[in-house]
Nucleic acid binder design. Structure first.
Length: 418
RNA sequence: GUGAUUGUAGCUCAGUUGGUUAGAGCGCCUGGUUGUGGCCCAGGAGGUCGGGGGUUCGAGUCCCCUCAUUCACCCCA
């Protein structure tokens, strides 16, 4: 095979598949406005600092997965590895910092330099939503509600909604201390990664996949109890609101998200169908996000869904394929004059929103009919010298095998009737 | 970045212990019908066997390197 393959971790999406993607996009455009959200489109690259500062210099994503390059002016730019930081950068041009709420959603490609696997690409696509500028448990619960609404609308059932709280920054220290003491006492039995994590990023130990670590994690102290009263009440209230909304969830104290900016409520929906261990199809939480030169963070709550993963799950659940586009009317011509007439006819029909394909090559009737079959045409129009002279066209029904002579101007009403 | 896996026609795949001109099915083209598709019949086009090097009289087949696929790990959506 010649090297026409796209670069690793990228893919071409052909029309058959594109209809599935379009349905995801259309569903977002239908559901999110019901909650007052409009679409925001931000650049695919940003100044590198936006992500370094926004996501956190220490995170895995920033440290080793970003596509960073210099432009001709020597500026350091980065292809966005996630959506939130760029959206915050854009919204700082509004008055979100004064507590004026903004509600936006976004759709588009993201880029991370990872090794591809099931449900993981280097260019992948997310649909995300952000509620920015306000903090309240009601907001968090409503954002989660809109997320569940969205995936239900896609026919995705059987996912598990996991919920946890990260507290606020002040809550983090006592909790970390508690965990560090505990894990230090079990350091002998843990994997190498987790030993390093004790000093570097203790939270990640909680979602280590190694069997021996999981055993230890299970016995870990309930660090949430060390959070402030307010933080605990905030989370309780979010849970109450979800109960009230009839949304079922599981509290998972070991759910910690990989980006530094999260506070309070964090959540994800995991699904086993169609995916390996990359089982999170949508995830998010409340955040406090700093951008370069900011003393105060932007606050908000949001989530992002992986489009590739949504599609894998939909297909594993046998969600019905989107309706295919209506096949074109196929115009067959015998001879140059007929072809010119058909080119004109095609233009007329398209002005009236009828999809039409004209065969341009001077091929046999047989070959032209085969071509019509190939594009799935239900009807074909046949025109040669005889029809031209008589001022008519032949319209053939490819399923019934029948055909009729019509005046060209009657074609549309004939097609509409059948 | 680590590990495993696979790479032969547009697609899905055969190809025996290394042995002449590399195969099948589907798809495509032409004909069997002066201007009527699908089914059938006949013929045809299409391949640097992922790429490079090596062993051998001889390599799709064995060895090394490399690129790519898929999956797992790490991490994340």
């Amino acid at each position: 095979m010649a090297n026409f393959a796209p670069p690793p971790g990228t893919a071409d999406i052909f029309p058959d598949e594109t209809v599935w993607w379009q349905r995801l996009e259309q569903t977002a455009a239908k559901v999110f406005p019901l909650y007052g959200y409009g679409e925001l489109r931000t650049p695919i690259f940003e100044y590198t600092e936006v992500f370094k500062r926004g996501i956190g210099d220490e995170t895995e994503v920033v440290q080793k997965e970003m596509y960073t390059f210099e432009d001709r002016g020597g500026r350091s730019l980065t292809l966005r590895p996630e959506g939130t930081a760029g959206v915050m950068r854009a919204l700082l041009n509004t008055d979100v910092m004064n507590g004026n709420e903004k509600r936006v959603y976004y759709i588009g490609p993201m880029f991370r330099g990872e090794r591809p696997a099931a449900g993981r690409r280097r260019q992948f696509h997310q649909i995300g939503l952000e509620n920015v500028g306000k903090i309240s448990p009601e907001t968090d619960a409503e954002v989660i509600t809109s997320m569940m609404h969205f995936i239900n609308e896609l026919g995705i059932t059987g996912g598990r909604l996991l919920l946890n709280t990260r507290g606020v920054k002040a809550d983090r220290e006592p909790a970390e201390k508690m965990l560090r003491e505990y894990f230090r006492s079990h350091i002998e039995a843990m994997c190498d990664d987790c030993r390093a994590r004790i000093e570097r990023n203790i939270w990640r130990i909680l979602d280590c996949k190694q069997e021996k670590c999981r055993e230890i994690v299970k016995q870990a102290p309930e660090y949430v109890n060390s959070y402030s009263q307010e933080s605990q009440e905030y989370f309780t209230r979010v849970c109450q609101l979800l109960d009230q909304a009839g949304i079922s969830y599981e509290i998972d104290p070991f759910l910690v998200r990989g980006l530094d900016y999260y506070v309070h409520t964090v959540f994800e929906v995991v699904h086993t169908a169609g995916l390996g261990t990359q089982s999170a199809i949508v995830a998010g939480g409340r955040y406090e996000l700093f951008l370069p030169e900011m003393k105060k963070p932007v606050i908000g709550v949001g989530f992002a869904a992986g489009m590739e993963r949504l599609l894998l799950v939909q297909q594993a659940l046998s969600v019905a394929a989107p309706p295919p586009p209506s096949p074109p009317l196929f115009l067959i011509s015998m001879g140059d004059e007929a072809r010119d007439a058909n080119i004109k006819l095609a233009a007329d029909l398209r002005r009236q929103n009828v999809p039409v394909v004209v065969e341009f090559e001077d091929k046999s009737m047989k070959a032209q009919l085969r071509a019509a079959n190939r594009v799935g045409s239900r009807y074909v129009v046949i025109r040669g010298g005889d029809e031209l002279n008589a001022g008519i066209v032949i319209c053939k029904d490819m399923e019934a095998g029948t055909q009729e002579q019509l005046k060209p101007e009657d074609l549309i009403s004939y097609l509409r009737k059948s």
